Amino acid sequence: MGDSTEMPAEQSSPWTVMDVAEFMHEDTEEIICPWCGYEFQDSWEFEENGEHDCYECEKPFKFCRIIDVTYDTERIEP
Rank of each mutant, 00 (worst) to 15 (best):
T5P: 08
D42H: 13
S13Q: 02
R65M: 14
E56S: 12
M7Y: 01
F23G: 07
E51I: 07
E30M: 04
G50D: 02
C54W: 01
W44F: 15
P14C: 05
D42T: 07
T28Q: 04
T70K: 15
H52V: 11
Q11H: 09
E39W: 00
E39S: 00
E29P: 07
F46W: 05
M18P: 07
T5C: 06
T28I: 06
T70A: 10
E30K: 01
D27H: 12
I67W: 09
C33D: 00
E48N: 11
E58M: 09
Y38L: 03
P8G: 08
S12T: 02
K62G: 15
S13D: 01
I76N: 11
F61I: 01
H52M: 11
C64W: 08
P60W: 09
A9W: 00
A9Y: 00
D42G: 14
H52D: 05
T28A: 05
I32G: 00
E26Y: 14
D42C: 10
C36L: 03
P8S: 09
T16R: 09
T28H: 02
T28M: 02
E58Q: 06
C64K: 13
E74I: 06
T70P: 08
R65E: 15
C57H: 04
M7C: 07
E10D: 04
T73F: 13
D19A: 08
K62Y: 10
S4K: 04
T73N: 11
